[in-house]
Design a protein around this nucleic acid. Sequence first.
DNA 1: TCGCACACGTTATAGCATAACGCAATTGAT
DNA 2: ATCAATTGCGTTATGCTATAACGTGTGCGA
Lengths: 132, 132
Amino acid sequence: MNAPALTKNQTLVFEVLEKADGPLSAYTILDKLRDHGFRAPLQVYRALEKLLEYGVVHRLESINAFVACAHPEQNCHSHGIVAFAICESCGHVMEFHDHEVDHRLMDWTRGKKFKAEKTTIEIRGLCEACAA
Amino acid sequence: MNAPALTKNQTLVFEVLEKADGPLSAYTILDKLRDHGFRAPLQVYRALEKLLEYGVVHRLESINAFVACAHPEQNCHSHGIVAFAICESCGHVMEFHDHEVDHRLMDWTRGKKFKAEKTTIEIRGLCEACAA
DNA sequence: TCGCACACGTTATAGCATAACGCAATTGAT
DNA sequence: ATCAATTGCGTTATGCTATAACGTGTGCGA
């Protein structure tokens, strides 16, 4: 899925996520956009839905939050499974890809004839700075 | 963490999850236990917290639900990272472990000096029966 | 110009999770 | 034995996350 031009709301939501130094909840995004006319959660969720579809934003399932893709210029969906390391202290998120992991998981799904649609890999813990 | 004897509430919650043929939300568990005196979500959440700690129940982050461990007799925490394949059609969950995946992720975290506490791997899609 | 698709706005509601209080039972050290 | 600490439990209230359902406006191709 390639990203067409973003609409006004989509652009606003994306910019908020890009400027943030960590993942944001939908309601936090809403609060940051009240000055721009946002009034209801659905305005955020609808924009997020598209941004996720376009692959420029990721959802962190384990913390119910959203983060801008680390390399939105490329199509993130083509990089295989995206994995995240989330620091529970400072909130920073590192995004990475590991083809060997993808391969192992695909081997498993193939063996089970399981049709994978979306795979989540999230490592929660402490980043180097916070663990010190 | 080894499991001590379960309390009454913990036992009730665990039995509900064991008998279920798929993951259950906390509120679904609550409804199933109203006849046994459960009245409030906290009763469920508190039991779940312990069961998760003991490793006999898993939380599925991507669907906000809970499932009994596939092999509660052993200590699941000692098996490395637990991965799940969740059928979005029939709701069935398959639990598995892949040491090579663990190894790759541990390599990554070691390289980044990231101290992993809890890792989530969840594959959503269609099981063999539902994909047909 | 009609119909369709899509983005948007609004209100209401559903679903998930925890804070804060107090009580009862258990345990274990003195 | 008794006191203090811990743990489980029950209840009320609240907060956070997400979506249903309705209607409006706009652009665009048949």
